[in-house]
Computed example of a mutant assay.
Amino acid sequence: MMMKGLYEAHLPVSDIKASISFFEKLELTLAYENERVAFLWIEKGKTWLGIWKADMSTIPYHPATRHVAFQIETSSIEQIKAWLIEKGISIHPMFGFSEEQQPLVLDNPPQFHAAIYFLDPDGNLLECIAPLEIDAVENNDMMTYKDWVRKKNPFID
């Protein structure tokens, strides 16, 4: 296969400096900055995020223009909420699931993911997502990650 992964994604922001500070809290590393754009490494040499000073930061949210999902290890999905909150980042209610109910499990057959949502300073929707099951054969409704774990392991409290 020629394609090896996603190299970059871009978001509109109103204040480059404030956005750099926010993404550095998420442990992204500044690679380049000028008055209209900055690039931050997610994984140096492999993946980065471009943030652009643009009026588009005020248009209503739509996932096609103002959404980035960061892949995380499945084993860290339960720790991610505490990690974000410790950094002063609030969990954003999504799909009818409150902060308390996240992480949640997305019902995107045939692949299921655990996810937790939050906003950057401009209201761009950010997501930490971890694969749970690939090529799943059953259909599921969206549920909390805790309910997913109970469903897969009924003997665990």
Rank of each mutant, 00 (worst) to 15 (best):
L28N: 00
V137M: 15
M94D: 10
F118Q: 01
A18G: 06
K17G: 09
S76I: 04
Y145S: 12
K46E: 13
Y32T: 04
N140T: 00
D107T: 03
A136C: 12
W83P: 02
E27I: 00
W52I: 01
I16V: 02
L132G: 10
D55T: 08
I85P: 01
K25G: 08
A114K: 01
A38P: 00
Q71V: 01
I134E: 15
Q101C: 05
I80T: 07
I77S: 02
Q111A: 12
V105N: 07
V68Y: 06
F112T: 08
N140C: 08
E73A: 08
P103Q: 08
E35F: 04
L104W: 01
I91K: 09
G123S: 12
P12C: 05
G45E: 07
Q79S: 10
A38D: 03
L6F: 12
K44P: 07
E35L: 01
A69R: 03
D120G: 00
V37T: 03
V149Q: 15
W148L: 04
L30W: 03
A18F: 00
K81T: 11
T29F: 03
P131Q: 13
A64Y: 14
T74C: 11
P121T: 06
S98N: 04
E100D: 15
I80C: 10
F155H: 15
S75F: 05
P12R: 06
R36G: 12
P131S: 11
R150F: 12
R36V: 09
D157H: 08
E8R: 07
S75E: 15
Q71F: 05
M3Y: 12
T65K: 15
A82L: 09
E8S: 08
P131H: 10
V68P: 00
P109G: 04
I116W: 09
I59A: 14
P103D: 11
K53V: 08
E78T: 06
P93C: 12
F95P: 02
A82G: 06
L119A: 11
D122S: 14
A38K: 02
H67T: 01
P154Q: 12
V37I: 09
Q71P: 02
S19A: 11
F70C: 03
Q71A: 01
A64H: 03
K17N: 13
G50M: 10
G50I: 03
D55W: 01
K46F: 09
T144V: 13
P154Y: 13
Y61L: 05
K152F: 10
A115Y: 06
K81W: 06
F95H: 15
P131G: 14
C128W: 07
A18M: 06
D122N: 15
I80A: 13
F118K: 06
I129F: 10
E35C: 03
H67L: 11
G5Y: 08
K44Y: 03
N153M: 09
S14N: 08
L104F: 14
L40I: 01
F22C: 07
A18T: 06
M142N: 06
M142R: 13
P12T: 04
M94F: 15
V37F: 00
L84P: 00
